[in-house]
C-alpha cells in the first residue's frame, strides 16, 4: 500500500515513470517485474496520449510508439491483470483518455488491478471535486495533484488539503525531459520543505542521475524519474539488463 510505503520508509523513495506499450506492446509485465526486483519502490504507469501537451520529445516519442504498437486503455488493464508484480502503482495520463473510457469504469478497473492513485495533470481540481471525487472515493482511488515553482503558497496549501497520499512537485516550470538542472530548484524545494505540508512530496522532472536524485530527496520523501528512464530503454536489445543497469546507476546495490 502506498500509505505504508510512505509511513515506513527509511530511505528516499524511488518512483519510476514508464510508458505502457513501450518499447514493445507487451513490455509492461516485464518492466514491472524487473523494476520491482531492482528495488524500485513504486511506479507510475503512463497511459500514452496522441497529444501530450506537458511532455517533451522523449515521452512524446515513447507515447507515439506505444500507440503505434496498438496500446489501448483496455489492453493496459488486461496486461496489469496478468502481471504478478506487487509493486505499488499509480497511473498517469491525460484526462481525455479517462473521460472517453468512462471515469467510473476506469476507477473500477484501477481498483481491480491494485492501482491506488491516479495522476491527471489536466483535470482541474474544481472539476474533480464537483464531478469525480465521489467516484474516485467509491473505488478507493486517490488523485495526485501537481505543484510547480510558480504555484502560489496559498494554492499549495489548498492542494495539500485536497490530497491524501502524496503531492507531485514538479521541479521546474517546464515540459518533461527539459533537463534544466535540479540544482536550480533548490530555493523552491527548501520553501516546500519549510511549509511542513500534511502530505509527503515526491519531486519529479530534471532527475536523471544519482546525483540529481540524492539532491532532490534531501528535501522530499522521494523522487520520480521519467524521461531519463525512457531514454535508457529507447533502443534496448535487452530490456531487463538495461533496466537493471539504469536502476543500479541511481541506487547502487550495497
Amino acid at each position: 500500500m502506498l500509505i505504508d510505503l510512505f509511513k515506513n520508509r527509511t530511505t528516499p523513495l524511488l518512483n519510476i515513470y514508464f510508458t505502457a506499450g513501450f518499447p514493445q506492446l507487451d513490455s509492461m509485465p516485464k518492466v514491472l517485474k524487473t523494476l520491482e526486483e531492482a528495488g524500485v519502490d513504486m511506479v507510475e504507469i503512463g497511459m500514452p496520449y496522441s497529444d501530450p501537451l506537458s511532455d517533451g520529445p522523449t515521452i512524446q516519442k515513447s507515447s507515439e510508439i506505444a500507440i503505434r504498437n496498438g496500446i489501448t486503455t483496455d489492453l493496459i488493464f488486461e496486461q496489469l491483470s496478468e502481471s504478478s508484480s506487487k509493486i505499488p502503482k499509480v497511473m498517469m495520463g491525460y484526462f481525455n483518455a479517462v473521460y472517453q473510457y468512462g471515469v467510473e469504469k476506469f476507477c473500477k478497473n484501477c481498483q481491480k488491478n491494485n492501482i491506488e492513485g491516479v495522476i491527471l495533470p489536466d483535470l482541474p481540481i474544481p472539476v474533480y471535486l464537483e464531478k469525480y471525487k465521489v467516484i474516485f472515493e467509491q473505488y478507493g482511488i486517490t488523485p495526485i495533484f501537481l505543484i510547480t515553482p510558480e504555484t502560489s503558497e496559498e494554492r499549495i496549501r489548498y492542494i495539500d488539503d485536497c490530497s491524501s497520499t502524496f503531492i507531485y512537485a514538479v521541479s521546474s516550470s517546464s515540459t518533461t525531459g527539459k533537463g534544466t538542472g535540479i540544482k536550480s530548484a533548490e530555493a523552491y524545494l527548501e520553501r516546500l520543505q519549510a511549509m511542513q505540508l500534511k502530505n509527503p512530496i515526491l519531486v519529479g522532472f530534471n532527475i536523471s542521475t544519482k546525483e540529481d536524485f540524492d539532491f532532490a530527496t534531501q528535501y522530499a520523501a522521494g523522487g520520480i524519474i521519467g524521461s531519463a528512464f525512457i531514454k535508457s530503454i529507447n533502443e534496448t536489445q535487452d530490456l531487463e539488463k538495461d533496466i537493471q543497469l539504469f536502476i543500479q546507476s541511481i541506487r547502487p546495490k550495497i
Partner: peptide
C-alpha cells in the same frame, strides 16, 4: 462564470499553465 458554454469549454490545463 466558470468558463463553460453548457457542457463545453473550461480550462483543462496542467498545473504548469495554471498561473
Amino acid at each position: 462564470q466558470e468558463g463553460f458554454y453548457g457542457e463545453y469549454g473550461g480550462a483543462f490545463v496542467p498545473e504548469m499553465l495554471y498561473p
